[in-house]
Amino acid sequence: MSQRYDRGSVEDFGRWTEFSAGMWAWVFHKFTGWVLVGYLFAHIAVLSTAIEGAATYNATLQGLESLLVVRVMEVGLLAVAVFHILNGMRLLLVDLGVGLEAQDKSFYASLVLTGAITVASVPTFLAGLGGG
């Protein structure tokens, strides 16, 4: 509909409480995808300091890693990547026509696993902060 009648909350995201598993999986996959592609560009930009030489590279990386914000964001990045990987595998199976009846359960499983892996890795990511 090119000029469709706007029914306010009837449409789309106003209905988020009524989304089903498959829709949430899509929303999350898209969101994490945007984050990852954004990070990819930022990542290459930061690593570009390697072209300047060892000193700049080391200073930049260590400077960033000493910031709490960066560490926290890295945990976030891990969560995003893990979800995208797990849900991505779910989608690959769906594309192969495997386990379509369990698509909601596999989404919940991806979520739970993502949470578990993220929580478990927090100590690793915050290790050595402040102390050096």
């Binding site: 089903s20 598993a21 498959g22 829709m23 999986a25 899509w26 769906v94 379509l100």
Partner: peptide, 16 residues
């Protein structure tokens, strides 16, 4: 593959 169509189909057609 959001499966919305499959879930609402009143005739239970496995659309996805």
């Amino acid at each position: 593959t959001q499966f919305s169509c499959t879930e609402v189909c009143p005739k239970d057609i496995p659309l996805t």
